[in-house]
């Protein structure tokens, strides 16, 4: 049977993480489902609660970044005035209010589900994660952090402390989640896309797809190919852009949807973004 710890401070938490092999437990909305069992949840290891630590709940603006404490609830992020629109939209569509009042972004990230809804916007917005242990801290780019379903770059003694989201100016944005139903839904696939267009030229573009691979699909080389194009040039290239993305979107069949559907819808959404959203 598992033991549980409830440290009173971040320092105490880091000490526990250092000394023992623990499952960090923030909101627990994923962990409690994954470890559900009769009478008591059946965790494989001991558990350390950290959702209550004030140090991990802060959301603040720091220069050109928004810094989100790993244990900030999804509801807190949803209602924070400085949360970037794409992230807010994604978070607001995760599960239902009761779950968002409890679930945290840190948990969503460390659970590393390919269908985790806060992750694609973090990729698209070039977010970084601050990991801390007793020995010190390090900052990892979102796309370097995820290693596969349920696997991340976090070391045993580390905790995810903060999520750093650059507050870039994008003038064209699109978030679309395709779920199993209108609300309280798991994701079949999603697109997060943003562009900065000035004087008819695409200065910057970022496109991420969720739930269509072991990790989020974002390709900086393909984005680089679009950057610098005029809108007219881009429009002409849409077929080749779609074909480039078609090669890297390789989803699977599961109980929620089919690979064929996921891929087709992602390409449709990308086309829609390039043709419709990027009109103005």
């Amino acid at each position: 049977m598992s033991e549980s710890y409830r440290p009173e401070s971040l320092d105490e938490l880091l000490k526990l993480m250092d000394e023992k092999d623990l499952i960090p437990f923030a909101g627990g909305t994923d962990l409690m489902v994954q470890n559900a069992a009769p009478v008591l949840p059946g965790f494989k290891k001991d558990v350390v609660f950290l959702g209550h630590l004030k140090e991990l709940q802060q959301i603040r603006k720091e220069g050109h970044d928004l810094v989100i404490g790993a244990a900030a609830t999804l509801s807190a992020i949803e209602s924070h005035p400085d949360t970037p629109g794409l992230l807010r939209e994604a978070v607001a569509l995760i599960a239902a209010p009761a779950l968002r009042n409890r679930g945290t972004m840190g948990g969503n990230i460390c659970n590393a589900s390919p269908a985790g809804d806060s992750i694609p916007p973090l990729y698209a917005l070039d977010a970084k994660f601050r990991l801390q242990s007793r020995k010190g801290e390090r900052v990892v780019k979102a796309e370097d952090f995820f290693k596969g379903p349920g696997r991340t770059d976090r070391k045993k003694e580390e905790i995810l402390k903060e999520i750093i989201v650059p507050l870039k100016e994008w003038n064209i944005k699109k978030y679309r989640k395709v779920g199993t139903r209108a609300a309280n839904a798991l994701t079949k696939c999603s697109i997060t896309a943003a562009a900065k267009v000035k004087g008819g030229r695409i200065d910057d573009i970022s496109i991420a797809f969720g739930a269509v691979g072991p990790v989020i699909v974002r390709d900086r080389t393909l984005e680089q190919n679009i950057k610098g194009l005029t809108m007219e040039e881009m429009k002409e290239k849409i077929p080749s852009i779609l074909s480039d993305y078609s090669a890297i979107i390789v989803p699977i069949d599961d109980q929620r949807s089919t690979a064929v559907y996921r891929k087709q819808v992602c390409l449709n959404l990308l086309k829609d973004f390039l043709e419709q959203d990027m009109k103005g």
């Binding site: 199993t180 139903r181 209108a182 609300a183 109980q255």
Partner: peptide
């Protein structure tokens, strides 16, 4: 995974 309608459906 077996989803029934919610208030928003």
């Amino acid at each position: 995974d077996y989803v029934i309608p919610t208030t928003l459906d």
